[in-house]
Design a protein around this nucleic acid. Structure first.
Length: 513
DNA sequence: CGTGGTTAGCTTAAGCTAACCACGGTGCGTTAAT
């Protein structure tokens, strides 16, 4: 059957979006494919459609449980019942019955971690996958080296599964990261589909301020005047909490804070409320966003800086998915420099910690070294959990630990090699942050500077950024309303809620403010 | 860098202050002990 025909019959679309058709064709040819499509460009279609053209079953590696559950729900509601996610949402009994009947499914979602489970892996090996997908593949580079090291084992897993064709999908990867992903996954002669990361409908504004108080003031100013809904990013949970309370009490509308300190239930609730337009603003840490498929986010403000260009692009890319205009505002002060640096310090072990831990390990050859031992080995050395996992992974890579057991090894040689690698890793991270920091301080077109990082040529668009001239008025609440009236556009959501007698936030806000 | 918690040390011995220091952000899976 013709691909366009499947697209229409299965998904109800007449036309492919940019890149989709070529990517799907390569996937169906059984090639390894690396695809970089801008946020919100319909990446999941690239593996969903092939299933109905014969590339079935498919194994999808996804970074977040909530993301998996989302995709499962979406596919189910579109009438596909042969879809399942293997993760900690399932209790023991459910997992057992899923594993027993695994061959009945055509879409199997998994986390990188659960692929390390022996029973899961053995069961998956019996299935002849026609395609393996790494969704949000930048996680390999962003998290795999320290935070979630199981991401670096995906290449081996793929071999163990009989080397099915691989599709890596992401929205943001610099040339370096693209190379890292391709090599980590052992992709062979991949067909690369790399599209512009630029989101022309998002204007960029950088604002240098002198103190944190000025930043707070600016947040109030923008939250009051800008057309929402919006996301404000912070680098600490306490700031997110604090500003959410403050903004709500100042009549901005309903504001929630979101971070990993909340329990799963609250996180889900806030996501749902935001999606349903019941919140004007979400104040969050970088925990919020991945998989948030909300089309009408109008602004993203950074109260604190992310530490890489990719993170920044991911975060601002959540605005304006409906193709209408959005704005990204970054507030910057001199002291912001220290937070990203302290994160880098804390996620990688230092010289002293590495050599002391390895000396200790060398005295216990033949014994087990398990993650549980972090309490007795890592904590006294002041290692964070991430730093501990990093070392553990290094010990595995260097063959010092095999199946949790400590092997005989050349202490001095291994120490110096692991120290070298760690030093290099730390430098890479610092360089990335310094590059981002200098972008914040440069006196030139923001968009050009941003696109250069991704190997793209300058473009001219309007409105572009504060350097190229930007009228904020276009993003104001009032303007958005006036325009609707002038252009005679009916906002169907507004209209519908009026008909149903639902009191909208915007209206109630006026009476209080 | 800024913040928040802890503690030493002071003095109308119970509560205050100043000095000091640790910490700050991402998620998976799993299990032992009530």
């Amino acid at each position: 059957m013709d691909l366009t025909e499947i697209l229409y019959q299965r998904f109800g679309y007449r036309n492919f979006r940019t890149g989709q058709e070529q990517i799907i064709e390569d996937v169906l040819e059984g090639r390894d494919v690396f695809a970089m499509l801008p946020t919100g460009a319909g990446k999941s279609m690239c593996y969903q459609l092939p299933v109905y053209a014969g590339a079935s079953p498919v194994l999808i590696v996804s970074p977040l449980v909530s993301l998996m559950e989302d995709q499962v729900q979406q596919l189910k509601s579109s009438g596909e019942k042969r879809v399942v996610a293997l993760n900690s949402f399932q209790d023991f009994e459910m997992r057992r019955s899923t594993l027993r009947n695994l061959s009945e499914y055509v879409f199997i979602y998994v986390s990188p971690e659960i692929l390390q489970n022996k029973i899961v892996k053995e069961t998956l090996k019996k299935i002849r996958f026609q395609l393996m997908v790494i969704d949000e593949a930048h996680c390999i580079s962003q998290w795999g080296h320290d935070f979630r090291t199981d991401y670096l084992k995906l290449g081996d897993i793929r071999e163990e599964l009989g080397r099915p064709p691989l599709l890596a999908l992401t929205a943001t990867a610099t040339a370096e990261i693209r190379e890292d992903i391709i090599s980590q996954l052992h992709m062979s002669n991949p067909s690369c589909h790399v599209y512009s990361v630029d989101r022309p409908n998002i204007a960029i504004k950088l604002e240098k301020l002198n103190s944190i108080e000025e930043k707070v003031k600016a947040i109030h100013h923008y939250a009051n005047r800008l057309q929402g809904p919006g996301i404000i990013y912070f680098s600490s949970r306490s700031w997110a909490d604090k500003m959410a309370k403050e903004l709500e009490s100042c009549g901005v509308g309903r504001v929630a804070s979101y971070h990993a300190g909340l329990d799963q239930e609250d996180r889900l609730l806030i996501q749902q409320q935001f999606l349903n337009d019941e919140l004007s603003v979400v104040c969050s840490t970088n925990a919020f966003g991945m998989g948030i498929n909300k089309r009408n986010i109008r602004y993203v403000i950074h109260f604190h800086p992310p530490s890489t260009f990719e993170s920044y692009l991911q975060e601002i890319g959540r605005a304006g998915r409906d193709e209408k205009r959005g704005i990204a505002i970054h507030l910057y002060t001199a002291e912001d420099e220290f937070l990203p640096l302290s994160f880098i310090e804390s996620e990688l072990p230092n010289h002293n910690q590495i050599s002391r831990l390895m000396n200790n390990v060398s005295t216990r050859i033949g014994k087990r070294l398990t993650q549980k031992q972090y309490e007795s080995e890592g904590v006294p050395l002041g290692l964070t959990e991430t730093a501990w996992r990093y070392i553990y992974h290094k010990l595995e890579v260097h063959g010092i630990v095999q199946n949790d057991v400590i092997m005989n090894f050349q202490l001095d040689d291994k120490i110096s090699r692991i120290l070298d690698e760690t030093e290099r890793r730390k430098n890479e991270k610092i360089v990335k942050w310094v590059r981002f920091k200098s972008w914040l301080e440069e006196d030139r077109c923001r968009r050009k500077g941003l696109l250069e990082q991704f190997g793209e040529l300058p473009v001219t668009i309007d409105p572009c950024c504060d350097y190229c001239g930007l009228t904020l008025k276009r993003y104001d609440k009032i303007t958005a309303k006036e325009e609707k009236q002038v252009e005679g556009i009916i906002d169907w959501k507004d209209e519908l809620s009026r008909m149903l007698g639902v009191q909208k936030e915007e209206n109630s806000e006026k009476s209080t403010g």
